[in-house]
Design a protein around this nucleic acid. Sequence first.
RNA 1: GGGCCCGUAGCAUAGCAGGUGGUGCACCCGGCUGAUAACCGGGAGGUCGUGCGUUCGAAUCGCAUCGGGCCCA
Length: 1058
Amino acid sequence: MKEVTGSYNPREVEAGVQDYWKREKIYARVQELRKDGKAFFFVDGPPYTTGNIHLGTAWNKIIKDAILRYHRMQGRNIIERAGYDMHGLPIEVKVEHQLGFTSKKDIEEYGIAAFIEQCRTFAVTHMESMSDQFRQLGIWLDFDDPYQTIKPEYIESAWWAVQRAEERGLLERGHRVVNWCPRCETAIADSEVEYWDETDPSIFVKFPIAGRENEYLVIWTTTPWTLPANVAVAVNTAFTYARVAAKKDGHEEILWIADELVESVLKMGRYQDYTVLERVNGSDLVGTEYTSPLAGQVPHQAEIRHRVVAADYVALENTGLVHIAPGHGWDDYLVGIQEGLEVFCPVDAGGCFTPEAGAFADMYVRDANDLVIEALGDYLLARRTITHRYGHCWRCKTPIIYRATAQWFIKATEIRESMLEEITKVKWYPEWAGSARFHDFVKDSRDWCISRQRYWGIPIPIWQCEQCGKRTVIGTIAELEERSGVKVPDPHRPYVDEIVIPCACGGEMRRVADIFDVWFDSAVASWATLGFPRKREAFDRLWPADFITEGQDQTRGWFYSQLGASTVAFGRAPYKSVLMHGFALDAEGRKMSKSFGNVVTPEEVVNQFGVDVLRFYVLWANAPWDDLKFNWDSVKTIHRTLNILWNVYRFPLPYMILDSFEPAAGDGGRWDDSFVRAHIKDMPKEDRWIISRVNSLARTMAGDMQEYYLHKVTRALAAFILEDLSRWYVQLVRARMWLEEDSPEKRYAYETVYYVMRRLTALLAPFTPHIAEEIYRNLRLAGDPESVHMLDWPEADDLLIAPDLESAMEVIRSFDDAVATARQNGKRKLRWPVSETVVVTGSDEVKTALEGLNDLALNRANARAVRVVTGAWDRILWKAEPVMRAIGPEFGKEGPKVKALIESADGTTLKAAIERDGKAELDGYAITERHVTFTEALPEGVFAAPMKDATVYVDVTLTPALEAEGYAREVIRRIQEMRRQLDLNVDDFIVAAVNVDDERVASLISEEEWQKEIAGEVRAAALTVRHNGEKPAEPFALEKDWDVEGVQMQIGISRAGE
RNA sequence: GGGCCCGUAGCAUAGCAGGUGGUGCACCCGGCUGAUAACCGGGAGGUCGUGCGUUCGAAUCGCAUCGGGCCCA
């Protein structure tokens, strides 16, 4: 043990500890230590390798680290490989940006091989930087060998899964409407679409009904550019539609509009008058044929037989008739399939019209809106604009379009039931994350489009024969090499694109051009991290994962993609338990975003307050599943808490060292609790109490960790440090530390403090691994493990838990607070003793506690006596107040006289008489309880304050003896202060002289008893107390004038022998 | 538009198997001075988002509504 002089400097502590971990390879040794333990297979959700980590990423890893450290201390062998998600469009877009590219054409010209090298470099560089940042947060995952989605063995894990899908008939080539980014020229996942407001045209269009003169269906759309692809109009059979003769500027035309919407539509079209000719049910309209107003511009439109169809999703909005273009909308597409409509999509990958769009060919669709509107001519009924939420590509921010394309799908809808079933078998923290949130998401899930038309990703391992069309799905690189007869240098594009497999028909099979949706990469992490299918052993032993934890946004993300891929490949969920955590928000509860400028980085927090403070804060601030509202004040509070811990830790060290205290060692020079267990019966109550408390703490924490109540665990820790240790135990035990001679009391104090700190550091280790390690390193005995992280979790010791003592101590603490309040009311400082303190209570618990812990109560109250009184305390006086409402009517004009009598009577006597006899006589008048109320009147010098189930009365009246002690304490305090100013060691002796102006006070403290007391307390070899005495010949090292409660004193001190 | 979560003093948070709302920070006042660029006590501060309902009684249960978050459409 060495003394610690500095105050808590987190950055210094953390740098030292991390250096120690590195030097002594502590992480590896802890792994080694636990390798025979029961396995705990954890899968790290892979962060995407772009840029720096943010607060949410840090929170995520901190939760993981705290939980894994806890399980490790419980003896588990943790499989804890870190992982990174390194493919995908976000990186491609960043690299495109760096290279100044704007389209796929630029990439093709630059060369795919060179392009993906840039992507690879980008991903690897960022991965390394992120690992460094995580290491700095004290995260103990295996960052030296993380799983990386770009590695060949990882790519195989994905290939293998698709091969399973093919075997099970769950892989499908389908023509579907997908979210399409015209800039990136690829399909993008629903999860890659970001919504924000966009202003678009809002137009009402008349579709002429075939074979009718001047009669139209009125539809509404915000995407005029989809009109060239119109094939149908949908109505809802639950609505009534009106056939209206509408008049405008002398013309009349017949319009079909949902009955309830007629008024608003006609107003929009500025019609002056109308008549409803007939009303029909929606179903009566079904089958009605019409022609396209764009037949002149788009030749194919003239060939389509447009008709009215029924669809449930049509709402009573706008016109109640919906324009259907199966090539450009998901709902439209479904209606199209159902009705056997043509899927017409005259738009290319870049978002431009194809020649099929006739007059609009080559135009970018969003730019074509105005031309389409113009081309509608008289068929345009009304034109407005609308601001609505519209989807954009999450990477390049281009507005997306819906486009029917050929894509590869996993038929998630076919395995939906078994996915839902699997969800119920997983343990969810909290429960509703699975049973409600995730369940509802999966219930509504669609088939999963896994193909992307890009470059930096896992190539889809499907080879298709150019001649016969037969396809084959490759599961491993070895299989590919065997079947192609070619060595595969890198399973990425463009290398795999060149590999040809001979087909049985004599033709050549070539790879389909697509790569995987990047979500498919991480979906296979649970087996990829174990090297499966290349390696089998670990997979057979460990899979599925015991535990994963990610943010609530991963419900649709990683929780889902993993479940989907695993249900396809293995027919079961790849995880046994899932903790869903919240999102990191700013103090106002808003999302942190760069454009708001409200982003707080983990780095900022760490630079100011250190890693442990950040860690403790994010775990402590709220329940894991609630959103974290970041708050600097709270961070400061946590800093203060750890600072107090630090002070508590270092305060006994100088005394221990001075006394050469050696904690009792157990077997092999290893510390254990045998001393405490052997002596607990003899130890002072406060020692037994704090020992009980720290064991209770361990018990509560273990219970809460079962449910991953990280906030409760850290709050319990903070409360223990602040309330139990610092504010209470340390205050009680200080005096024993200062004892000169060796004594059992002092030894017990040392052993107790040591015991508590050893247990506490272990309890803190998962949450604040650095400060716990730092303290542990200084306290550990020679035979102890080198790191606090090698210890087992301290199980609560039932034999040392004393519930009665804990509750009795609660009473004393409440008493202590009340005494302080009463003294404050009586303006009597705690340093000044008081004669008597009385507790009036009806509670047995209070009585028992104060009697059982009377020494403690005396000490805390600084009183000559602490007494418990049940019922009434005889020194309480009562003041009688007349109740005129009762006196007036009864005594009539005698009333004022009675009032005066009551007011001047002795309330205490009056109350006693009424209580005894039911009435009292005052000058012949019978007074009963009706006529008078009593209020408590405290005797001179007595002050009261409430405590739990009791009232405390403190008599602050001074006597010469009390005064003598009070002044003596004042002198002691001043001399101590002067010792401090001289920077003396605690064991230095001094010589001192006190000169008191006031003769009476001088004589009080000159009494032998107090002079001895003062000399002893301040370690004075010589002490003189004088009244207006002459100054000593020798000047003192330090002389000061003091005003002590109005009494002037001159005090001088010097170090003895100087 | 739908699902889930959250909404308690200036800020953050506990209480939510219903029975007179706790705690921390900040604030004001005071104490302590052998943890001291620390520590401790006291005080003030609340329509428990809003409305309706169930109940003898609701922060706690139900419905509606508003605000925030994540996700979906």
